[in-house]
Simulated assay, not measured.
Amino acid sequence: MKKLTTIFIVTIVAIVLSACSNDQAGASEITITLEINDLTSETVISDEELQVVENTTVLSILEEHHDVEVQDGGLLTAIDGYERDTTKNIHWLYEVNGEMVSVGANEYQVKDNDHITFDLQKLD
């Protein structure tokens, strides 16, 4: 009986440890495209296809792959040294699949085949 109890406990511990080793258990990887442009100087900063975990936020992906500066509240101020300039009305805007998004990059959760575009541009 003692041997059976030991085997049972070892099995349970192994199951728990294997579940803990994968923080994203059950989450699937998807493919997205991330494009970053400085339209004020017509510079393509980055254009890459990435494998990411589904439902990850756009901001998390940016922070993982680029040098990003964000103000309190999630306002994006710089990507890879390209900074917004409020005195010249130059700001970062982003779109998903060609459409403006109504939530911040810290809230939008990516879906398979999303094409995400960040543009640094002068607003009129």
Rank of each mutant, 00 (worst) to 15 (best):
S46M: 05
E29H: 07
K111A: 11
K2D: 12
S102Q: 13
N37A: 11
Q109A: 14
I116H: 09
D72A: 11
L93I: 09
E29S: 15
M100T: 08
D119N: 10
L50P: 04
T87C: 01
L17P: 02
H66Q: 06
L62T: 05
E54M: 11
T43A: 05
G104N: 05
T43Y: 03
A78H: 02
T56H: 02
I61E: 12
L39G: 00
E69S: 14
I15K: 10
V16C: 13
S102K: 09
L4R: 15
K122D: 09
I30G: 03
L34I: 06
T5E: 13
S46R: 10
K88H: 08
S102M: 13
T6P: 00
D80I: 03
F8A: 15
Y82T: 03
G104P: 11
V58P: 01
A14E: 05
I9R: 14
M100E: 10
G26A: 05
A27Y: 14
Q24N: 15
L62C: 05
K3D: 12
G98F: 02
E83C: 02
A78E: 15
N22V: 13
W92N: 09
I12T: 12
L120C: 04
N55C: 02
D67N: 12
L120R: 09
L120Y: 04
S21N: 08
T87L: 12
G74N: 08
F118N: 03
T40P: 01
I30Q: 01
E64L: 06
N97E: 07
K122T: 14
L4D: 15
V96F: 03
S46N: 11
E95N: 11
D112C: 08
K111V: 04
L62R: 06
T117G: 01
A14S: 15
D80M: 04
T43L: 03
I9Q: 08
S28M: 09
A14F: 14
V58Y: 05
W92L: 14
G81N: 06
T86W: 07
D114Y: 04
I79D: 06
Q24F: 11
T33H: 10
E107N: 08
L34Y: 03
T31W: 05
D112Q: 12
T86Q: 13
D23C: 02
E42Y: 00
N113Q: 14
L59Y: 08
G73S: 02
V103K: 09
E99A: 12
L34V: 04
G98V: 09
L76M: 12
